[in-house]
Design a protein around this nucleic acid. Structure first.
Length: 764
DNA sequence: CGCTCATAAT
């Protein structure tokens, strides 16, 4: 992004002050928006001619006048030029332009300004500039038209440059000019320069102009100076619908949706009628707030104010229903829409993607994911083409479903359509490959990104850490620092997780200090979880416990679980029982926490504690454990429950599993099920009494149905148990295949008898 | 006079 040198910025203010004396003498700012525009007086006309009011002249009439006579009043051009704007027709504008020159009106200030405006509105800035440069005399409106043109055509730097030229020329900026320049500052995030212009505007009382006030409010909002945006808004004496809408959407952009809704109510009480812009903004706030009932009221208002047929409004209403779980309602609206845009498709895809992310029930989440994929396929069959929003949403879906084949297809599509170079799409790709357990492809996608962002660095560091490649994770972190990118707290979660994996205590502590001192990032509970995990993996349980005791957080359910799992696998049961007591005080919410506690107490034969845990489970009213696994092959997602026999291939699946089990036993695999299986109570029956947990079935299905040698990638809803973990390691040896299982807690990449998770930690 | 300010999906 180009930014102006600070010299230029200070230059502006000096210049502005200098110009003010002249300015204040010659201009008064009119806030009267209802003045009827009269063209007659301002047109140059030949003395012999009668003045024509262009407003009473339509396009056809004007055109016929133009054809019949070579000598016309300049007003005749107006409806024709208006038509050029409406048709976005540069060529027609050029024809009129030539005509204007022939008839000698090329010095008519109004007409030429209008022509500049026509060209800018048709996207032909070169022509607009050409007209401007040829003018022997220019006034501030001419200048402003050009500046506005650059702003409109996404050339804010040029807009500001022309503004500086304007000051140089001795012309006086008006509220119109300043509004356009403020808007140019907004798109360049030049809050400093914007502030200086604001100061000027305040000083000379142009601020009371509604439009200027709106522009300033918008500037501060875009530059993330929300407090200043609110102040600017409050200072607008006569707020119009744009003022309110600007402020409401500013609330959304700056993360205060509630305030936005309050301001909307204030607006209604003020008697200002919302329009389609307002309603779309408000509906998006309702999404953020998950305020369905309020949203339904807004839906009614949309009908009342006649905006319900407006496409953005419809899209927003549909998205709101989708995000609120009213999928039927959303689908109904979707299929009832006679015209839809790409945003409609994207809203549907993003809606299902979001539902998938938020859905605790893994089966439902999976359904949402496949719904999103199906909509994406439909979009591809339609006449519209996916864009960066589509790609980033759908790649998230692929990553959540561990659908690498679909992801690769979409990767190819981003290359073809040129969206690969987009940083959001690039990060989404890196994330997708990481979540699918393909560190090689993630690395390639990362390296091929034209520029890296905080998100992509972090995603890649975390990816290395999750794949057990600690050294590479830390190397990348150092590269990131060298590149001058500032890590955030999530980056450090990746760093600590890498240290934890490799048992690098000293490194971890050094980075922990660095995070606090150098980057002023407050540790969060996830950081402590990684560090506790690190001590546990090393078997340093007492250190882990001491660390928990002295950290500046109340240990949560997750942290205690890590310690307890460690105590189990390292045989320090006293500490385990103590930690379990403390954990129970927290009344855990996660089903898997209870499974861990139960299996610990069961294996120790502590029946009293078993029933205590059971009672708490009933009190907390937890749902059933959901052991689900899925595998995505081609464009289909196949799901499995424990001991599932619903698949048509199930006979083959079980045959293969039995075969593999026998071979594994001969290599030394021993079932770890004996103790856990002793429990037959209903609550955890699905978990413990199953002969085959779901991931085994999914893996077997993959082995049977994928091209030989291809990696098998499975998504599992809960954590893997130690038994399955052990068996899959043998299967990876026996089949010579890479097997990736992403469970609810971590990624397991099995290769030739090894797993990237390090084979220990909080396995149940 | 002519020239401005605001919207939905990652």
């Amino acid at each position: 992004m180009a930014s102006l040198p600070s010299v230029a910025v200070t230059g502006v203010t000096q210049k502005l002050d200098l110009e003010y004396r002249k300015f204040s003498q010659h201009y008064s700012i009119s806030t009267d928006k209802n003045t009827n525009i009269s063209y007659q007086r301002s047109y140059t006309s030949k003395p012999s001619e009668k003045n024509i009011d262009p407003k009473s002249l339509d396009y056809r009439e004007a055109l016929s006048i133009l054809k019949e006579s070579s000598v016309v009043e300049s007003a005749v051009y107006v409806p024709i030029l208006q038509e050029c704007i409406d048709n976005y027709s540069v060529s027609e504008a050029q024809m009129i332009h030539t005509h204007v020159i022939k008839t000698g009106y090329h010095e008519d200030m109004f007409l030429m300004t209008f022509l500049i405006n026509v060209y800018t509105k048709c996207g032909a800035m070169d022509f607009a500039r050409g007209v401007f440069d040829k003018l022997s005399k220019k006034n501030v409106v001419t200048w402003t038209a050009l500046i506005t043109g650059y702003v409109r055509n996404s050339e804010p730097e040029l807009a500001i440059r022309v503004f500086l030229e304007l000051l140089e020329s001795g012309a006086y900026p008006t509220n119109y000019t300043l509004g356009a320049v403020v808007s140019a500052c907004s798109s360049l995030y030049l809050v400093g320069m914007g502030k200086q212009i604001h100061g000027y505007i305040v000083k000379y009382n142009i601020e009371s102009d509604t439009s200027t006030g709106n522009a300033i409010c918008s500037l501060y909002s875009k530059c993330r100076r929300f407090d200043l945006a609110v102040k600017a808004f409050r200072r607008i004496p006569e707020k119009n619908v744009i003022s309110w809408t600007t402020m409401i959407s500013a609330c959304g952009d700056n993360g205060d949706a509630m305030l936005g809704l309050k301001i909307f109510v204030e607006m209604l009480l003020d008697g200002v009628e919302p329009n389609e812009f307002t309603l779309t903004s408000v509906l998006s706030l309702c999404c953020v707030m998950q305020a369905l009932e309020f949203g339904e009221q807004v839906h009614s208002l949309s009908i009342k104010f006649g905006c319900v047929s407006n496409l953005p409004v419809k899209n927003s209403i549909m998205y709101l229903y989708l995000r609120s779980g009213k999928t039927d309602e959303a689908q109904k609206l979707f299929s009832a829409m006679e015209t839809i845009s790409l945003v409609t498709w994207n809203a549907m895809i993003a809606g299902y993607a979001q539902m998938m992310e938020n859905e605790k029930n893994v089966l439902k989440a999976q359904h949402s994911g496949t719904d999103a994929l199906n909509i994406f396929l439909k979009l591809n069959r339609s006449s519209l083409k996916p864009d960066l929003f589509t790609f980033s949403s759908i790649l998230t879906v692929c990553s959540s479903l561990v659908a690498i084949e679909q992801g690769e297809q979409i990767h190819a599509q981003t290359i073809k359509t040129g969206f690969l170079s987009d940083i959001v799409v690039g990060s989404a790709l890196v994330n997708m490959y990481n979540k699918c357990g393909s560190i090689e492809k993630a690395t390639r996608a990362f390296v091929e990104m034209p520029t890296r962002t905080l998100i992509s660095w972090t995603s890649m560091i975390t990816g290395y850490a999750q794949h057990g490649r600690s050294a590479q994770a830390l190397q990348l972190f150092e590269d990131m620092r060298l590149a001058g990118e500032r890590p955030n707290k999530i980056t450090f979660v990746g760093v600590f997780s890498a240290c934890s994996h490799a048992g690098m205590v000293d490194q971890a502590m050094r980075y922990f200090k660095m995070m606090k001192k150098e980057y002023r990032i407050k540790p969060v509970v996830d950081h402590f979880a990684c560090l506790v995990d690190m001590f546990v993996r090393l078997g340093r349980l007492q250190d882990a416990f001491d660390f928990i005791e002295k950290m500046e957080f109340e240990p949560n359910e997750f942290i205690w679980s890590i310690l307890i799992a460690g105590c189990r696998s390292h045989g320090n049961m006293d500490l385990g029982f103590y930690a379990a007591e403390r954990l129970l005080e927290l009344k855990p919410k996660d089903f898997e926490t209870y499974v861990l506690l139960l299996s610990m107490y069961l294996s120790a034969g502590r029946w009293k504690d078993v029933s205590k845990v059971r009672k708490l489970m009933k009190d907390e009213n937890l749902g059933k454990v959901t052991d689900w696994s899925s595998i995505s092959i081609k464009d289909k997602v196949h799901s499995f429950r424990p001991d599932d026999r619903s698949q048509s291939h199930s006979t083959e699946i079980y045959k293969l599993l039995d075969n593999l089990l026998d071979k594994a036993k001969s290599l030394g695999y021993a079932s770890l099920k004996s103790l856990e299986m002793a429990d037959e109570e209903e609550t955890d029956k699905t978990f413990s009494s199953a002969i085959h947990h779901s991931e085994k079935l999914a893996v077997a299905f993959g082995l049977l149905n994928m091209t030989s040698g291809a990696s098998v990638r499975v998504l599992k809803s809960s954590s893997m148990c130690r038994d399955c973990h052990s068996l899959i390691m043998y299967i990876s040896v026996l089949t010579g295949r890479e097997i990736v299982i992403r469970d609810s807690k971590r990624l397991h990449q099995f290769n030739n008898g090894h797993c990237s998770c390090g084979d220990f930690g909080s396995l149940l």
